[in-house]
């Protein structure tokens, strides 16, 4: 095995954990100046109605502020959500709902991870497993 291999043997797992933690942490932080989560769905505005949105968004639609707008250049419809002040609904729930609803509207389905799992839990991959257990809740959306 090359020298690179050995060095990475030490650095690798540490970095993996750190990277996963960083993703988790950054995902949780909410910039105070930002109030809306927005996705663009590749369906024309005329086809969509706030009360008719499918999937996980329908479960929170009456507890958040939802607005729809035509995206420029035929890119579809922008769905924007504002969580009212003091609401128990989290940014993560909104991100997941937006992603799942977009997938339903565009592809007719929401992709599930492959299974049954082939991996085992170890102290090294637990931070990563924590992140992937909430794969659609994090990120910058």
């Amino acid at each position: 095995m090359s020298r690179t291999g050995k060095v990475l043997l030490i650095a690798g797992p540490f970095v993996a954990g750190a990277a996963a933690v960083a993703v988790g942490r950054r995902a949780k932080r909410r910039t105070p100046a930002r109030h809306r989560h927005v996705v663009t769905v590749y369906r024309p505005l005329v086809e969509l109605e706030v009360t008719q949105l499918p999937g996980s968004l329908s479960e929170i639609v009456d507890r958040v502020e939802v607005s729809l707008a035509a995206a420029p250049g035929g890119r579809g419809t922008e769905i924007a959500i504002r969580i009212p002040d003091g609401s128990p609904i989290t940014d993560g729930e909104v991100r997941r709902a937006l992603r799942e609803t977009r997938s339903l509207l565009e592809a007719g389905d929401v992709l599930l991870p492959s299974g049954p799992p082939t991996t085992v839990s170890t102290p090294l991959n637990r931070p990563l497993q924590k992140v992937t257990a909430h794969g659609r809740e994090g990120g910058l959306l």
Partner: peptide, 21 residues
Amino acid sequence: CDNGNTNPAITETMWGQAPSG
């Protein structure tokens, strides 16, 4: 593709937007 990765959070955080799976 927007709908082919069940873990978009990781790459979206690293790169700004997530490619597919």
